[in-house]
Write a protein that binds this DNA or RNA. Sequence first.
DNA 1: CCATTTGCCTAAAGGCTTTAGGCTGGCGCA
DNA 2: TGCGCCAGCCTAAAGCCTTTAGGCAAATGG
Lengths: 189, 189
Amino acid sequence: MVRAGLTAERLARAGAELADEVGFDRVTVSELARRFDVKVASLYSHIRNSHELKTRIALLALEELADRAADALAGRAGKDALVALADVYRDYAREHPGRYAAAQYRLGPEDAAGSAGVRHAQMTRALLRGYDLTEPDQTHAVRLLGSVFHGYVSIEMGGGFSHSAPDSQETWSRILDALDALLRTWPSS
Amino acid sequence: MVRAGLTAERLARAGAELADEVGFDRVTVSELARRFDVKVASLYSHIRNSHELKTRIALLALEELADRAADALAGRAGKDALVALADVYRDYAREHPGRYAAAQYRLGPEDAAGSAGVRHAQMTRALLRGYDLTEPDQTHAVRLLGSVFHGYVSIEMGGGFSHSAPDSQETWSRILDALDALLRTWPSS
DNA sequence: CCATTTGCCTAAAGGCTTTAGGCTGGCGCA
DNA sequence: TGCGCCAGCCTAAAGCCTTTAGGCAAATGG
């Protein structure tokens, strides 16, 4: 009997693909076993349980996203950087809806600390160096940007903007214009 | 044998309470049956399936949220109204995390059209009358506010802001200040 | 070359969803 | 008041998912 060569890593990668195909919430240990043409119980030698599988997929997505963000930010500053970073999130969500959903999976403090989530915050901070903000406003701005990016993308993915004019791309551009303007004239306390 | 007096309505209400207690994703037809001290199959005379149950809970939450928003907006304008509306979302999410999650449940176009989602958009539009925006900027602004509110609240609920200074309330206030300033000086195309 | 570890399998228990079909308490009508 | 009918709950059963326990065989390394 030929062995399938399972690994926690490979399972997570396959799980990420599965998520993009059928949705993160339908990623199931059983379905994954089917894909590897292996019995379900076999997966439990590699992952503790379903939660660990999802966590690994989430961590993987966060890494990928952070890598893309780092790439996009390289050599850019100011509004250029703002738009680039924003597009990274939006594009990733469109290309990999399942992974994007996974990135929202709630992690325990343990996993969260070791995740790429930290890098995300740092990069947003780096981006803000192109604007003139000092603490604590910088932190407020980091949180605002995170909220807008995630909020917009998740509403858009949910179809929230698809049944009314103007089209979503137009709004996205105008929102980024507005955020840029806001960051340049941030109202200090 | 005394009848339990089940109803799609009562099931949805009980489901909403259950969601707040254990989380929306753990709302289950089985658990609900247990709460009514009734066999699982009995519920299927009132709801078509699990999806319909969740949809009804979502619609209920959207309704409640819209009612609160309408209340909060009454007699207010400008920044006052902005803060009031924003707090409605945030407070609702804190008081009723399960219902808030339910409100994010993806509805079919059918249900979406008949939902209170429409009222939400209209109220945000009404709020913007306190600022000087005309179409299509008004729509862009509606979408921005929706993104910020939803994005911030969902990150906050996920614990995203809880492990770093400054505290979340402070950021929330400053973000609302910033949005107010932005709306007053919205960069026209 | 064989001993041990590692990887996948069978078996089984327990939970959730959904459908089919049966019994009965009550409401409506005569 | 009495009776029939139907709505409302039940039992049964199938199908899928998770998770644990224990077994056999393929790799690995001494």
